[in-house]
Amino acid sequence: MIVPLAAGSTVDAVARALGPGFGRATGHPVVVENIGGAGGIPGTSQLVKAAKDGLTLGMISSNHVINPGIYKTVPYDSLKDITPIAVIATVPLVLVVHPSVPAKDVKELIALAKARPGTLNYGSAGNGSTLHLASELLVSETGIEIKHVPYRGTGPLVTDLVGGQVQMGFVSISQVASHIKAGTLRALGVSTTSRSAALPDVPTLAEAGVPKYSFDAWIALVGPAGLPKATIDSYAAAVKTAMAASELQSALAGQGLTPMSIGPDAAPAFFQAELAKHQKLVKQSGATLD
C-alpha cells in the first residue's frame, strides 16, 4: 500500500490503522510504503504504473485533486489513471485564532477583517495546501481581505499560531485540540457541514455565519486504472469489514477523523466533483509550484 506522503502524516496513520484488518479480510498481508515529496506526485506516479493485479494499492488525500492546478506538470491523469475503491474518512479542519485577536466568534472575525482590510494574516501548510484552500474558500464566501503566510508544513504553522506570529488559520483538529483545551488558541468554527465529535461545542462555519461554507480534506483507497471489477468489489467489501472494527474506529477518532462510506460506485463522481471544486479554489488563490 503506497502512501505518497511522509511517515507520520495523517494519511500514513490511516493506512497503517486500516492495513491489518484489510489484510485479514483479503488474505493479503499489507505492507505500507511511504514515497513522499512534491505533494504526493512521485508516490502516485509509482502507483498508477503498477501492475493491474490488485497487489499494489495507494492511500491518497485531497492533494490528489489539488496538484493538477498548482504544478505545471503532473505525469498522470488524476481521474483516468486510478481506480477508486473507497473514500475512507474526512479530515475536519478547525478555524483557530490567537487569543490576542479581538474576535470571539466568526461573525466578529469577519467584521474585524472588513474593518481592517489587509491587516489580518492567516497561515497555511504551504501554497496550494488544503489549509490554504480552506482559507481561500472563507475569503471567497465572505469577501474579506486577509494576507496569506505559507509555512513548510503544519508543525511550524502551529508553533507560530500558538506564539502569535500568525493570527489565524485552518488546521486539522488533532493538531490543535490540546492548544484549544489549554486556551492558547481559540476555536471559532469547524469546516465541515456537521460538528466534529472531537469538538462538539464548536459550531460549523455554516452555523457560525458563513451559510454556504463547507470544506474538508479526505483520505481514499485507490488502485491503478483497470483493476478487474471482481477485485474492486472484493476490496471494497474488505474495507467495510475493517472499518467496522472498534479498534479502527478508535484510531480514526484519535486522529479527529470522520469515517466515510463512499464505495467504488459513487467514488468516481465524488472525485470528479472534488477536482472541480479544488481547481476553482486553486485558480482563485493564484498558487503555483514548479
Results as ranks from 00 to 15, higher is better:
Asn121Met: 02
Asp265Thr: 15
Arg16Ser: 12
Glu33Val: 15
Ala251Gly: 12
Leu112Val: 05
Ala182Pro: 08
Val14Pro: 08
Ile85Tyr: 07
Tyr71Pro: 11
Ser261Arg: 13
Asp77Ser: 14
Ala7Phe: 10
Asn121Trp: 00
Lys80Met: 08
Leu221Phe: 02
Val222Thr: 03
Ala115Ile: 01
Phe270Gln: 07
Ala273Pro: 02
Val87Leu: 14
Val48Tyr: 00
Lys277Trp: 05
Ala251Val: 03
Val171Trp: 02
Pro92Thr: 06
Val96Pro: 10
Gln249Lys: 15
Ser9Thr: 15
Gly123Trp: 02
Leu120Tyr: 09
Lys212Met: 05
Met59Val: 15
His98Lys: 07
Val190Met: 08
Ile66Ala: 08
Ala266Leu: 04
Leu79Gln: 13
Leu93Thr: 01
His132Trp: 05
Phe22His: 09
Trp218Cys: 09
Asp53Trp: 09
Asn34Ala: 07
Thr154Arg: 07
Gly37Gln: 01
Gly8Phe: 13
Pro259Lys: 03
Gly183Glu: 05
Gly27Phe: 11
Leu275Val: 01
Pro102Gln: 05
Val222Pro: 03
Val94Ser: 09
Asp81Ser: 11
Thr154His: 13
Ala38Phe: 13
Gln165Pro: 00
Ala251Cys: 08
Asp201Asn: 15
Asp81Glu: 02
Asp216Ile: 00
Gly123Ser: 04
Gly126Ser: 04
Ser178Arg: 14
Gly286Arg: 10
Ala237Glu: 13
Thr159Tyr: 13
Glu108Ile: 07
Val32Leu: 09
Met243Cys: 07
Thr83Ile: 10
Asp105Tyr: 03
Val3Glu: 01
Ile60His: 03
Asn127Phe: 14
Lys147Glu: 14
Leu57Tyr: 13
Asn127Gly: 12
Gly123Leu: 11
Gly54Tyr: 05
Ile146Phe: 06
His64Tyr: 03
Tyr151Met: 05
Leu18Arg: 07
Leu252Gly: 04
Asp233Ile: 01
Ser214Phe: 13
Ala13Pro: 04
His98Ile: 01
Thr83Met: 09
Lys212Gln: 15
Leu138Gln: 02
Gly153Cys: 10
Ala17Phe: 10
Gly118Leu: 05
Pro20Ser: 05
Gly27Met: 07
Ala217Tyr: 01
Thr241Asn: 06
Ala17Lys: 04
Ala244Leu: 04
Gly226Asp: 02
Leu227Val: 04
Asp105Val: 06
Ile2Met: 00
Pro42Gly: 10
Val162Lys: 12
Tyr151Cys: 08
Ala51Trp: 02
Tyr71Leu: 12
His28Thr: 02
Pro259Trp: 05
Pro99Leu: 06
Ile35Tyr: 08
Ile110Gly: 03
Ala236Ser: 14
Gly123Cys: 09
Leu257Ile: 11
Gln167Lys: 13
Lys277Gly: 00
Ser78Tyr: 01
Glu274Arg: 14
Leu93Trp: 01
Thr241Ile: 11
Glu141Pro: 09
Thr130Met: 14
Tyr235Arg: 14
